[in-house]
Design a protein around this nucleic acid. Structure first.
Length: 272
DNA sequence: ATGGTGACCTGACCGC
DNA sequence: TGCGGTCAGGTCACCA
């Protein structure tokens, strides 16, 4: 489900609902996520005030007053909702964070590839955050930087843009969309891209992610915003999940490839 | 250092 | 109806 636009949509929805509220209590029903929830998680969070919610890559940081932050990752299938605090828990509702206003933040994640934990480490100190590349929508991510990172690389370009040590936040859906819109074949060795192609790709990554955020993310299967509304970006997808249909630009048949074991749809005519 | 592979999980869907 | 296979939005530890 969640790529960067979905996570950013979630951040905005949460922030509007929980900023400056106090955490009354926390319930964990299943601690076995991508990494186990630490035994003292509930105790540490109790009575802390939520100051802000930040996003770094696809991680959310719930900033607590004078006391570090809760780090959340949604993995493949996770989502967060704001619900009345007496809402019964279903099978995959692993964590509830009860707030001072009779509501709670509920973390649900069927596949449990996500994580929830508390830290008091700066980004430079945190093992999961310290090696992350620049944000795609920041000025640090530009054509010059990206071209430098591609030079002499034999890896295919799709893998490079999905590598979070090159740029964060580009997952499988948006990688395919960005490559289509930049007219670059997903299997090109990164080192073969010209400066102009790098510039085009960087621009499309920014445009596609910005639009997706504006539309509330992509709705796939069960992605919902924190208020339960769907995202609307599916209406804007050109290639993801459309193998066998015709290219909206040239009407050739879109083809399917496996790259790094992940499905990749592209137009064999437009993308060179 | 860089690159490739398997591992972590559950659920939906398809063909038999 | 049931069973086995395949696939799915992500990331990281481990190996060569």
């Amino acid at each position: 489900m969640p790529e960067l636009p979905e996570v950013e949509t979630t951040r905005r929805g949460l922030l509007a609902n929980v900023q400056f509220l106090k955490i009354r209590a926390v319930t964990c029903r299943n601690r076995q996520l991508r990494q186990p929830i630490s035994p003292d998680f509930e105790t540490i969070c109790q009575n802390c005030k939520i100051l802000d919610i930040e996003r770094r890559s696809k991680y959310l940081k719930i900033i607590l007053e004078d006391k570090g932050y809760i780090l959340i990752h949604l993995g493949m299938s996770g989502h967060l909702r704001i619900l009345p605090d007496d809402t019964p828990a279903a099978k995959h509702d692993h964590v509830d964070i009860y707030l001072s206003n009779k509501h709670m933040i509920r973390y649900t994640d069927p596949r449990r590839f996500g994580m929830v934990n508390w830290y008091d480490l700066s980004e430079a100190e945190h093992p999961l955050l310290k090696r992350l590349a620049p944000e795609p929508l920041s000025t640090a991510f530009d054509a010059h930087y990206f071209h430098q990172r591609c030079i002499n690389k034999t890896q295919v370009i799709k893998k490079i843009i999905m590598n979070n040590q090159v740029v964060v936040g580009v997952g499988n859906i948006y990688a395919q969309e960005c490559l289509f819109l930049s007219r670059i074949h997903p299997q090109r060795p990164a080192g073969s891209l010209t400066y102009l192609e790098c510039e085009r790709l960087v621009e499309q990554i920014k445009v596609v992610l910005t639009k997706a955020i504006q539309q509330g993310g992509t709705t796939l299967k069960d992605f919902k915003q924190v208020d339960g509304k769907p995202g609307y970006f599916t209406q804007t997808l050109f290639v993801y999940g459309k193998a066998g249909t015709s290219c909206q630009s040239c009407h050739s048949e879109l083809e399917l490839l496996k790259i790094d074991n992940r499905s990749t749809t592209f137009c064999p005519n437009c993308q060179i």
